[in-house]
């Protein structure tokens, strides 16, 4: 299998959980075990759009219980003999190998996944900032020789990029260090927030400089948070910023 694989460096490993929720896209080559018509294949692929049931395979490191997964779309691309090429967008943790098997079952002839390429993992896609191992080795050596920090930006992205699809609350400077110590975010600390925050869902707390402070669990929706003038709005789950980056109890308006 090839394709988009976000590699987290050192401290960035803390954002991995956010990537699980951000969705994936693949191009898949499926091999049918008997001949079929394009119409039948297209029809069956369409049936798998939306919610599907999967039990993780023996090789998986997760608990093998039946669970649902969202298929956002399946786009039939091409068919040549028994080879079917399709594009699929799905929730993280969806086993495409099992999807192909199940498509084969529904078609009644059997099928297996021949080849898979991931073209998106959350905000990370094939074009633009994707690099190969060769690129990493080359640019790192260039940086070691030239010590020009612009070179680092050619192959490394700030960890905040991984949080592009996670809804955000921008917080006051004076609230930052408390959150870095694990404190929950209270209403007075909120400066601005994105629409679509749902209670109990994952969100990220950011500074006005757009630095990620922590991953948190929303305790209220966007609308509710807007109307609150006191109380806890988010439970801090994973601190991302080192303590002491911002001072304790710094009051706004005193610059």
């Amino acid at each position: 299998m090839t394709g988009v694989l976000p590699i987290t460096l050192e401290e960035s490993r803390k954002i991995v959980q956010a990537l699980l929720y951000s969705g994936k896209e693949y191009v898949c080559l499926m091999k049918l075990h008997a001949d079929s018509s394009e119409k039948k294949v297209r029809d069956v692929l369409a049936e798998f759009e939306n919610e599907i049931y999967q039990r993780p395979p023996l090789r998986a490191s997760v608990k093998r219980q039946l669970r649902t997964r969202r298929i956002y779309y399946i786009d039939f691309l091409e068919m040549d003999g028994r080879n079917v090429l399709f594009k699929v967008g799905c929730e993280g943790g969806t086993y495409i190998r099992k999807l192909c098997y199940d498509i084969g079952e529904v078609l009644g002839i059997g099928a297996h996944m021949q080849e898979l390429r991931r073209i998106r993992a959350g905000p990370f896609r094939e074009n633009g900032d994707m690099v190969t191992l060769h690129d990493v080795a080359y640019w790192f050596m260039e940086w070691q020789q030239q010590r020009d920090e612009k070179i680092l930006r050619k192959f490394i992205l700030p960890m905040e990029k991984a949080l592009a699809f996670v809804p955000k609350i921008y917080i006051r400077d004076s609230a930052v260090d408390a959150v870095c110590h694990g404190a929950n975010l209270t209403a007075p600390g909120v400066l601005s927030l994105e629409t679509g925050i749902e209670k109990d869902s994952l969100m990220a707390l950011f500074t006005l400089k757009r630095e990620a402070v922590a991953l948190a669990e929303a305790l209220a929706s966007t609308e509710e948070i807007l109307s609150m003038d006191h109380g806890i709005v988010a439970k801090t789950k994973r601190v991302l910023m080192p303590r002491g980056t911002y001072p304790k109890c710094w009051k706004s308006g005193e610059i």
Binding site: T2, G3, V4, L5, P6, I7, T8, L9, E10, E11, S12, I15, F124, R125, E126, D129, M130, V131, T132, L133, V136, W143, R147, E149, L152, R153, F155, I156, L157, P158, M159, E160, K161, A162, R172, D173, V176, L191, T207, L208, K209, R210, E211, A212, M241, T245, Y246, P247, W250, S252, G253, I255
Partner: peptide, 28 residues
């Protein structure tokens, strides 16, 4: 509100060692 320029910095302006330690690579 405003943010104090004396504390923290924009992610893309992190100095080299910090930029790497808080970085991600979009690897093929």
């Amino acid at each position: 509100d405003k943010t104090d320029p004396h504390y923290g910095r924009k992610p893309e302006e992190r100095p080299a060692e910090e930029y790497i330690r808080y970085g991600v690579i979009n690897l093929d």
